[in-house]
Computed example of a mutant assay.
Amino acid sequence: MHRIGGMSTCWETKKDKKVNKETAFIKNGSKLLEKLVDICDGKCNSIRSFSATELKKATNNYDPQKILTGDSGYKLYKGFLQGRPVSVKKFKDDDEQYEYCFNDIVYASKMSVHKSFMKLLGCCLEARIPILVFEYVGDWTLSDFLWGSEEARCQPLLWIPRSKIAMDMANAVAFLHAAFSKPIVFRNIKPLNILLDDNHEAKLSDFSISISIPKGESHVRDSVAGATGLIAPEYLTTGNFNEKQDVFNFGVFLLVLLSGQMVVDFSRPEKEILLQDHVKKCIEDDRFNKVIDSTIIAEGTWPGKEQQLQAYTALSLRCISELAEDRPTMIDVSKELRKIYWSAISCRQQ
């Protein structure tokens, strides 16, 4: 704010903008270092620095037409840097998203070695809340293919591509649980956070609410975070959870992928509003086909397909067991889904 002859104006000088950018850069750099020490013991892959000006230009001033996906706290834009497509993630301007943003930077920077995570290229620390730059995967999310635009849904997801997406996402989550001294709980596995390329290769994104289990501990305690229907009973009631929260979340995700239905749907009977309750009721009433997306049914049958669908559903239900100890590990889930996928491939080729 400036005063001219007793009148206030809201414009900023170039000098003011430069000072604001420098202040944000110093504050955000300090916060990033703090997070790196906390989560990664100060070690991570290199993170490239981008300027606010080049990201604004890359996205045509964050043109709404360039939005790829978004959630309550962010929007992901398609942009171009040096002639190459990228994905630019801009968070909502509030204190909660400030914390989530740094989570996303630090955890994503650790995942570049794994093919099933969207790769972080760098970030801009000049904005009040840093802006993230990821690789460009494609124009659509899994959510788009299931429920989105006509253009996306005209490319139907058949059983084999769906089983591969399930296998790849299970591998990714198992990696989070097993590859680090402090296991990472993702807490947000849903179609909106999975981007697909033209060959339906899937990449998981958005570490905003991910958390590490401290060394020497079996659980972590935190306020309840995540979408309705994806939160395990023990986490919901006690605030304590571990990797089995992700297993529960993944079980629900598997049912979404199989059925093509929303996790929460108020058009279903009252006791079946949650997808897991709807699936259990259909199976109990011997209406298994009502669980399966019509696209999967319409592609026809072949030897072994029914058994694959049954095994997949049984695995999903084990994942959402009421007791955490009754759920499999994500490594076991990954192994079972690999068997189902390769069975589908070999049977289809006969």
Rank of each mutant, 00 (worst) to 15 (best):
V247E: 13
A178G: 10
F175E: 07
D286E: 13
W140K: 13
F186W: 13
I26D: 13
S208P: 00
L158W: 08
L236I: 00
R3W: 05
S181I: 11
G229Q: 09
G229R: 06
A314P: 00
L309D: 02
F80K: 07
D63K: 00
A152E: 12
E135N: 03
T301E: 15
T141I: 07
V279S: 03
D94V: 12
F288Y: 05
M1F: 08
V137F: 01
N28D: 09
D286W: 04
V256T: 09
A232S: 15
R128K: 09
F102R: 06
Y98N: 03
M262E: 14
V106W: 01
K18V: 10
I283M: 11
G5I: 07
E12F: 12
K43Y: 07
L258V: 12
V133G: 02
D71G: 15
Y107E: 06
E322A: 09
I213Y: 10
A24K: 01
R327Y: 14
S294P: 01
L315V: 03
S321M: 06
L120R: 00
D332R: 11
K115L: 11
I340Y: 13
V37R: 14
E272S: 11
G251W: 11
E217M: 08
S210L: 02
K18T: 15
F50M: 02
E12L: 15
R48Y: 04
K21L: 13
T23I: 13
D71S: 15
R128A: 08
I331P: 00
I26T: 12
Y107L: 07
K17R: 14
M169G: 00
A178M: 06
R287Q: 15
L55I: 13
P269M: 02
L68H: 04
R287G: 00
L132H: 05
Q261L: 15
L315S: 02
Q349C: 05
E201P: 00
T141L: 08
N249V: 06
W302A: 11
G5K: 14
C154Q: 14
V173S: 02
A108P: 02
K57M: 04
I320G: 07
G122Q: 03
D197H: 07
N242T: 03
E272M: 13
K115G: 02
Q155P: 00
G138E: 14
D246F: 08
S343K: 09
